[in-house]
Design a protein around this nucleic acid. Structure first.
Lengths: 188, 188
DNA sequence: ATCCGAATGTGATCTACATCACGTAAGCAA
DNA sequence: TTGCTTACGTGATGTAGATCACATTCGGAT
């Protein structure tokens, strides 16, 4: 668990063992069972999460009780309601567990403290969000430009493990399409 | 011009006058006329741009020659092909000028140098990308959840100045809708 | 003023996808 | 086993928005 985070961080920045140990000491391990909720709409959000094992979904539910999935987070991915976390507002999305899950939890206050204390850590988090921003722009463009079939193929090409890991109706909710349409689509 | 950037930066971090002057010395002012191109698909991208005056659009053109606008950038906004800039790859989007435009140009190398030299500057750029990431996620969600009319009203509520500044067919290209549909929409 | 191209409006038709309805199969607890 | 819930398949029908075609209006250049 410690090693997974260390490998992840040191792909981007180099920390001494002491620095990493100090960094790591701010993370709180948490375990969840399949189906459990990590963040609910309306919650106060003060942590972000680094996924160690399992898979969570971050999703929005609209007034018609339709679900849209913003992110599947798998091992070495970070997740939270970042709008709520950064702006200190209530959660507008939910995060729950698709499988049994182990997480490392880092509070907003601790992240900011660590960023202020270690330039390298600030650098890491800048780099991480840069990646996220670029990925998000790319997904937006795919949404505008591509039909459902193309988006489905793109998704499976990028994350083949999702095919077995995640029920099809959740894939549909990620693609922003009805489960019926998705079903018809790959049976042809 | 210098003051606009200074006010923008100091909303997030505090720099001494000397620090800011040093920071500012890495920016190169550039002027463009309406219709001119700043970045074309296939270009080597090594700068990002801080908009001083005017408005640019960052857009993608697909094989059917349909245009999708990723961003309108107005004064105090930053723009570039960030995927290309961060990964040192060729541009996959275009950026051109909707009006006469003044920019401050900052190279990727200089940004990284400044970030490494000044912790506060790294902090600023982390904060900036955080904002961008959250906004991008929000737009993605709106795309999945809302119909064109709602997205149009959302856009004008957020950026009322766009209504007069930008031709309607570009608004349509931002919303990911045909200009005909948009026209019918607000004439009712 | 005159010209020309860009921007916009509007009808007719087409289509990708949603929605509704109903079915079957698989997992899981009592 | 039974019963229940969740996942998934598939037909019939509805609809938001795309596409095509053509008219009109506006703004800039000469």
């Amino acid at each position: 668990m410690k090693q997974l985070l260390k490998d992840h961080i040191t792909k981007t920045v180099s920390l001494t063992d002491e620095e990493f140990d100090y960094f790591f000491s701010h993370f709180k391990p948490q375990s969840f069972k399949k189906g459990q909720t990590i963040i609910s709409v309306g919650d106060k959000v003060d942590c972000e999460y680094f996924v160690i094992s399992g898979c969570v979904k971050a999703f929005y539910i609209n007034d018609d009780i339709k679900m849209y999935i913003l992110q599947f987070a798998m091992p070495t991915w970070w997740t939270s309601d970042y709008a709520a976390l950064y702006n200190q507002t209530k959660a507008t999305i939910n995060i729950d567990c698709i499988s049994d899950v182990e997480l490392l939890c880092l509070s907003n206050a601790d992240r900011e403290k660590l960023c202020a204390e270690f330039h390298q850590i600030e650098h890491f988090f800048r780099w991480r969000t840069n990646k996220g921003y670029v990925a998000s722009q790319k997904r937006l463009l795919s949404f505008m430009n591509n039909n459902v079939k193309t988006r489905y193929e793109e998704l499976l090409a990028l994350y083949p493990q999702l095919y077995n890991l995640v029920p099809k109706h959740l894939i549909a909710a990620y693609l922003g399409v009805s489960r019926e349409t998705l079903s018809r689509l790959y049976n042809s």
